[in-house]
Design a protein around this nucleic acid. Sequence first.
DNA 1: GTCTATAGATCGATAGAC
DNA 2: GTCTATCGATCTATAGAC
Lengths: 225, 225
Amino acid sequence: MDTAQQRLNDAFRTRKKAGRIRQQNEANIIRAAEVEFAQNGYKGTSLNAVADRAGLPKSNILYYFKSKFGLYGAVLADILEMWNQAFNDAIVDSDPAEVIYSYIESKIQYSFTHPLASRVFAMEIIQGAPHLEKYLAQDLYNWIEERSQVMQAWIDSGRMKPVAPAHLVFLIWSSTQHYADFGTQVAWCLGREELTEEDFQVATRTLSSVILGGLGLELPERARG
Amino acid sequence: MDTAQQRLNDAFRTRKKAGRIRQQNEANIIRAAEVEFAQNGYKGTSLNAVADRAGLPKSNILYYFKSKFGLYGAVLADILEMWNQAFNDAIVDSDPAEVIYSYIESKIQYSFTHPLASRVFAMEIIQGAPHLEKYLAQDLYNWIEERSQVMQAWIDSGRMKPVAPAHLVFLIWSSTQHYADFGTQVAWCLGREELTEEDFQVATRTLSSVILGGLGLELPERARG
DNA sequence: GTCTATAGATCGATAGAC
DNA sequence: GTCTATCGATCTATAGAC
């Protein structure tokens, strides 16, 4: 299957013989770059800052990734890989309540485990996605189209209250990613330094309760109590 | 009243006698800066780009705003002014359905009329809000605290399904701002070049239907049909 | 008030020693 | 493979002519 993430990887990853040292260094650099890109955006990030954070000289960065843009592409490819994963896990069953609950749960879990990746992706989109357009625009359209047909079928057979399916997906994306992207603001509102695992549990309960309830669906067994 | 927006203004706006020319030039510069900051973030924006967009020489920018940071502060102050406005309009009535519906409607309207302002604010928060912390953190905590008490009272008197009030606010913020901040992605998903006014109407209907429904509330009269 | 010129720092990227 | 040195471009900010 030809995914956006694979096309990005093909375009930007060096993918040489991948010796152990190279693999380790690349991972180390990408981790550092993720922090910097999340904090300062693409233009605002300097290779110097990435190099300092990774504990390597600047030219080492440019040895593994042939340009700043190549490094950014590698970071985005890693992120898209996880996004696609969440995508594919989302709709495998056909019970609306179970599918939607699982999707909310997995997206919030992702916000908890990968807040920086979510932020880099968010900044790219907010800035108009200048680097992702040709890798993502068509994929997203097709993905939403397929899922919308499934949801419309649920609605037509009376298993779910009628809503615009695509906008329901936007609602789930936005409300779950919020805990990663706007985590700073959420933490301020709750009077904390950082969000706790319990905050994410309350988020899962609140979002699933309101959204499933608003669709006329019952919470799955495992989500109650 | 001492608002975050006023404190920002006091700190960064020159606020000289405000002759007509100065007023016009400042507004022109802020409009140009808003576009650049939304597209490239704080670090990624150059005064040169702002000056070019405003059609003025670079040093003119630094005459009106004494530094890049001062210009950014002025842009944020303008944005916070609008945010506070939406804040204050939100809770004046005491019918839960009416209050929440109005809030959703006004936030989506704001996403439609001021997408760039929303994006600048979003990028600032995603980056950890390094420039806003001392102006906003305490205000947000107090604001949420007050509203949470109102909502908790609604819940305790059985007028609304029990949910975590602060998280309900996060849900409304995230889902409505999504149409401004992630407008590019939403447009891709809908197969459009740009979002239309009708898209925002569908968004209002979908979000209010799901959220109010999930809280066990009826849509207000004017929202039906 | 408005502009040109430029200082001083930092940027991405490359050359070349080891 | 890894590092130092450095180029040319671009950045914020200031000085000073008009």
